[in-house]
């Protein structure tokens, strides 16, 4: 048995990486027809027309990038702020409950966020937020057009809420990992609490915080159901955040049952490949930054 165990464990340990490699390989193979038909034109082509068997994924890539950007622009400051509050400022009686509620937010199924977005957020955006943005945006290209409610902004807002707990969690760990003696050094030189937090603690926690933001970005890139419910599902590229759009994940979810031709299926698989590769890269970078943080923590 003693000789068998390491062997079994080693095999099990190799199964998971093998699955990842196999998945990537299968996607690559499945996308062969679309790759041969369109080449790199698939990534930059902006017409998605199943009827004429013409597939360009740019509107989906664009939608994914825009919703992710909106989510991160909102979630990063919010999440880092909450993390600073929890790690440095909150009194003990508040720290536990608030931290717990933030973690709970991460456990809510994304379809619930989608429902809330669809029935509460989107109508409010259509009647209040978007008319206000259009009126006060002074024709700023990001806030132009008709207030649909559904669109890049709605999807981005809900993504921001979904991603915030991940940013908070990582940023909080990173802030807590900054050695107490470094804070004391700052205070002992006459630094105020704010100076200590901004100039000593946050720079020390920088790579962990960046890792947390990237981890959130990985989540936002791949999030499917809530985005599908809020993005408007229109394969169009628009400069306005108020316009409806489409994302990589959403088009797969919506169209895999309708993909009747081999090329159509292959095009959807290639979209999956693009999504797989981009989330893999983002998560890899995030993990590396977090690992660097852990190494720095061990050295201190």
């Amino acid at each position: 048995m003693d000789r068998l165990y390491p062997w079994i464990l080693r095999t099990l340990g190799l199964v998971v990486p093998a699955l990842v490699v196999a998945l990537g390989w299968q996607l690559y193979q499945g996308a062969a027809a679309a790759r041969h038909a369109f080449g790199w034109g698939f990534v930059v082509g902006s017409s998605w027309d199943p009827v004429f068997n013409h597939f360009g994924a740019w509107p989906f890539i664009f939608g994914t990038l825009v919703t992710t950007a909106v989510a991160i622009v909102l979630a990063a400051p919010l999440g880092i702020g909450v993390a600073i509050f929890l790690a440095e400022l909150a009194p003990n009686w508040l720290r536990g409950p608030v931290g717990y509620l933030v973690e709970l937010l991460a456990a809510v199924p994304s379809v619930v966020f989608g429902l809330w977005g669809l029935f509460v957020l989107a109508p409010w955006m259509r009647t209040d937020l978007e008319p206000w943005l259009i009126a006060h945006g002074h024709n700023f290209p990001l806030f132009r057009g008709a207030p649909y409610g559904l669109g890049f902004l709605a999807a981005g807002l809900v993504l921001a809420i979904m991603v915030t707990p991940f940013v908070v969690g990582m940023a909080r760990e990173a802030i807590i990992a900054v050695p107490r003696v470094q804070r004391e050094a700052a205070y002992a030189l006459g630094a105020t609490r704010w100076e200590t937090i901004w100039q000593v603690v946050l720079p020390g926690a920088r790579s962990g915080i960046a890792g947390g933001v990237l981890l959130g970005m990985g989540r936002a890139l791949g999030e499917t159901i809530a985005v599908t419910m809020l993005i408007g599902n229109t394969p169009a590229v628009s400069a306005s955040l108020l316009a409806p759009g489409y994302t990589l994940a959403s088009v797969i979810a919506n169209e895999f049952t309708e993909a009747t031709t081999a090329l159509y299926t292959s095009a959807l698989v290639e979209i999956g490949l693009v999504l797989f590769a981009s989330t893999l890269v983002v998560n890899l970078i995030a993990r590396l930054m977090i690992a660097r943080l852990a190494a720095a923590g061990a050295a201190a």
Partner: peptide, 12 residues
């Protein structure tokens, strides 16, 4: 001013 038991330079 104060000097501590464990040296605590900033990561600068």
């Amino acid at each position: 001013g104060m000097v501590f038991q464990r040296s605590n330079p900033f990561p600068f």
